[in-house]
Amino acid sequence: MTNDLQSPAFQRLSRLLNGLTWACGLLGVGFSVARWVGLGRGGESAWHSLLLPLQAQLAGLKPPPSLSWPWQLAGLGLECLPLAALALSLLSLRSICAAFIAGEVFSGQAVRGFKRLGQGLMAMALLSVLYGAGVTALLSWLASGQHGGLVAVSLGSFEISLLILGLLMRLLSQVMAEGQRLKAETEAFV
């Protein structure tokens, strides 16, 4: 009897998801670096305005005419907050996919992967809020000539969705752990 979890379609989907994690991670890092390099060069184009982080746009900030390299590094450092949580989430997803590809769906590796994925998503929600506050503070402070500024804290549907999805992954890790326990019991009787 064939196992649906070993079917070619399941294996292809697991491999595709595994590969997409690399693409998402590289795209996230690439865009973050490009954002702060682009903001450092200044300009008045519409493209330059698109580089401005969404939180800063919502606070009504305009792109700075230019940024010196220490401030570019500070901005990139702030950007690393949600990127670190994204990296944890993507590495956890890769671990889950590796277990699935190996045919070990109800394994300790998959259980740990779902648990870490949930933690990563919840951390991403929190760090996204902190990033928004930090980036608006930095850019408004620089725009004021380093004499003042504002801190905008926002919690929107993106962050709430991440929290819910993170909790769902934590719940799924408990379901997977129960599946692992039942599988072990079944194998003990055989």
Rank of each mutant, 00 (worst) to 15 (best):
A74K: 02
Q109M: 13
S107F: 01
G148Y: 10
L130Q: 09
L142R: 10
S7Y: 12
A184Q: 14
A34P: 04
T136R: 05
S157D: 08
G179W: 07
S95Q: 13
I160C: 14
G156V: 10
L162A: 05
F189K: 07
A143L: 09
L150Y: 08
A74H: 07
R116P: 00
L83K: 10
V29W: 08
L126E: 09
L139N: 08
E159V: 11
L91W: 14
A99L: 04
A34T: 04
S107A: 07
G132A: 07
L150C: 10
G118D: 06
N18P: 04
L88I: 12
S92G: 03
A133I: 12
L61M: 11
G40N: 02
I101F: 00
S107E: 00
T21V: 09
F114E: 04
I164Y: 13
D4N: 01
G28K: 01
K115P: 03
V190P: 02
T136W: 07
S92R: 12
L88Y: 02
V135H: 02
A137D: 05
R12Q: 05
A87G: 08
L81M: 15
I96D: 02
S32D: 09
S161N: 15
L117K: 04
N18F: 15
V111Y: 02
A56Y: 01
E104I: 02
V129G: 07
G134R: 04
G149R: 05
G113F: 00
S14V: 06
L167I: 10
N18R: 14
L16Y: 13
V175C: 12
F189T: 12
G166A: 08
G75M: 08
Q146Y: 05
T21P: 04
G166P: 05
G145L: 05
P64D: 01
L50V: 08
R181N: 12
R15N: 06
G30R: 06
T2W: 10
L168P: 00
A137G: 12
G75E: 13
W36D: 06
G103N: 06
P63Q: 06
L86I: 07
S92T: 03
A152K: 12
L58I: 13
A184G: 06
L126M: 14
G60H: 13
P64V: 05
I101R: 05
L121N: 01
F189V: 14
L126Q: 09
R35H: 03
W36H: 04
P8K: 09
R116N: 08
L5N: 07
T136P: 01
S173T: 01
A98Q: 04
L26D: 15
W69G: 04
G120K: 01
